[in-house]
Simulated assay, not measured.
Amino acid sequence: MTAEKTIHVALSELGSAINSLENAIDMRIERQRESGEVESEVKRVHVDRARLAQELDQSQFRANRLEEVNREVSRRLVTAMETIRAVLDR
């Protein structure tokens, strides 16, 4: 093989290696970008989950409080009805 051919083959292989390296770098950058997007989405999901959990806790507290008030109102109505019956029976 002549020196000129050897240089040509070496330059061709170097060009291929550089192209492969550029492709690998592009793929790595794309994966990092996608990974960053995924991480951002995961963070948003966690924030939403925390907000929804807090809203659920607040709703549960209100529901429990309404249930307590409902029982108290029911108890007072029963007492009032018994008092009215007692007055009417006299």
Rank of each mutant, 00 (worst) to 15 (best):
T2A: 09
E4K: 08
K5Y: 10
K5P: 05
K5R: 12
T6H: 02
I7E: 02
I7L: 01
I7D: 06
H8R: 14
V9R: 13
V9A: 03
A10T: 10
L11N: 12
L11Q: 10
S12H: 15
L14S: 11
G15C: 03
G15V: 09
G15T: 11
S16R: 15
S16I: 12
A17L: 15
A17I: 14
I18T: 08
I18K: 10
I18P: 03
N19F: 12
N19I: 14
L21C: 14
L21D: 13
E22N: 12
E22I: 14
N23I: 15
N23E: 15
N23W: 13
N23L: 13
N23Y: 12
N23C: 11
N23R: 14
I25L: 12
M27F: 15
R28L: 15
R28M: 15
I29Q: 11
I29L: 14
I29G: 08
I29T: 13
R31Q: 07
R31T: 10
E34Q: 14
E34K: 12
S35M: 14
G36H: 06
G36S: 11
G36W: 07
E37G: 06
V38N: 04
V38A: 08
E39C: 06
V42H: 05
K43Q: 13
R44G: 02
R44F: 06
R44C: 03
R44W: 03
V45W: 08
V45C: 11
V45K: 13
V45Y: 08
V45I: 15
D48E: 12
A50P: 06
L52S: 01
Q54V: 07
Q54F: 03
E55I: 07
L56A: 07
L56P: 03
D57E: 07
D57A: 14
Q58I: 02
Q58G: 11
F61H: 03
F61D: 14
R62S: 05
R62M: 03
R62D: 04
R65N: 05
R65W: 04
L66V: 01
L66H: 01
E67I: 01
E67T: 05
E68G: 07
E68D: 00
V69L: 09
V69H: 06
N70W: 07
N70H: 00
N70D: 00
R71L: 12
R71E: 07
E72L: 13
E72V: 11
L77T: 06
V78W: 00
V78P: 02
V78H: 04
T79G: 07
T79M: 01
A80L: 09
M81P: 02
E82F: 02
E82N: 04
T83H: 05
I84D: 01
R85F: 02
R85H: 08
A86K: 00
V87T: 04
D89A: 12
D89K: 09
R90L: 08
